[in-house]
Design a protein around this nucleic acid. Structure first.
Lengths: 220, 220
DNA sequence: TTTCCAAGTTAAGCATGCCTAACATAAAAG
DNA sequence: CTTTTATGTTAGGCATGCTTAACTTGGAAA
């Protein structure tokens, strides 16, 4: 088991690689972790020696399979905790990140699997990021459309709300428009672009402003 | 904020004081934390300097109000996590301690209060230990009797099961005899000392062996 | 092609928190 | 009382993970 510090390096390297591709420079990692380049170079040497990454001086780092596995494990824990804190304990969108940042390093495999099960194995976190499963497999991102572009008569799953303000979230929650909730598009009113959706048999009208912030994926 | 290590010292000192009273020797702490006396002496000096405890060479340590407050905070977090892991996530009795041991140092005030609320402010953990409230106040332990000593016709709350084996717990759980569950004593059969209790309107017979392990507190 | 500078590395130092080994003290045994 | 022993403390070391300061290096500008 790597230390908390090492887990954070591996996680950062993984995500920098996703964003920029190819090998990641030590200074990119330093920037991300808000530490000095010096610390990063030193750690790169250690992590390479322990088989978590390939490192050639002046040429950046690249995760090995072993390192990637750890990174995905930490990311899985982070995202599951985020979903859990929001959906089960009612923390606010703005609070969960920092909280999950600490919990992700202090959660056993057994515990995170219980949480996964309790949440019914979600595939994406509240930001729409994929949650790796127990084996480290990453769910494919579905095609998303905003509610404005959805087709009348079809069924969708609420995937993401493009606004972290709790006001909008609370409004939608009152209408039972939770994350992952299945809905049906009943009607689109062309005169004001509002949309009528059905949730658990109940119809709600959503204004254009609200509808454009709600991303949904189509259900077969 | 003290470090994780310091939190553990303060927690240990608090509980040793409860058990043995008066001032706590550095070697008692060392024993409890499974580290050397040397490390403990050194830490005692640091904690004293930071105002968490009083320390006189060769005379042991004693928590200050400031130290006691931290200790109670950590104990609160530990016990609430234990209850939460068991009741909400279904971890087993044997798993929760180690898990809570890590989580207790990585949980914000806000998060633990949400957990407290979600559990409906429990006063005692699954082992029967009191859970300090947000202000650090410790609930008074109720008078406990084993089910064998309970009085026919009266109502009780299940407080503790004096057996950590999951077999007994699972058996009781099947009968809806959860922790904190309210029950009524219907009848005691003198020929085999078995007891008939009512749970949510349903009667169950418990053998003497089982009944003696279940501690209950009387309800007014 | 050479120069120069930003990016990257090494070296030395510090805080934390542990260890072992050597030393000090209190209190019990003689 | 004095001696012994168990209990407790100090000193010196080590691993981790960070810092600053001094140094390399690779590649773009001249």
């Amino acid at each position: 088991m790597p230390t908390i510090s090492k887990e954070n390096y591996l996680k950062s390297i993984y995500s920098l690689n996703l964003t920029y591709g190819e090998s990641v420079s030590t200074s990119q990692v330093a920037m991300k972790l808000e530490i000095t380049n010096a610390a990063t170079s030193e750690m790169a040497r250690k992590l390479a020696k322990q088989g978590y990454l390939h490192y050639e001086k002046y040429k950046g780092v690249e995760l090995t399979e072993k390192g990637r596995k750890i990174a995905l494990q930490i990311i899985r824990r982070h995202r599951l905790w985020e979903v859990f804190l929001i959906k089960v304990l009612g923390l606010s969108w703005s609070e969960v990140h920092d909280e999950a940042e600490k919990l992700e390093h202090n959660t056993s495999e057994e515990l995170i699997n219980k949480i996964d099960k309790h949440l019914n194995y979600p595939e994406f976190d509240p930001h729409g990021h994929p949650i790796p499963n127990e084996k480290g497999e990453i769910p494919q991102m579905p095609v998303l459309v905003s509610l404005l572009e959805a087709t009348v008569g079809k069924n969708y799953k609420i995937f993401r709300v493009a606004d972290e303000s709790s006001e909008l979230i609370e409004y939608l929650t009152k209408l039972n428009l939770f994350l992952y909730q299945d809905i049906k598009i009943i009607e689109k009113l062309s005169f004001d672009n509002s949309i009528i959706v059905q949730v658990n048999g109940t119809n709600h009208s959503l204004s254009e402003k609200v509808a454009e912030k709600v991303s949904v994926s189509i259900l077969k």
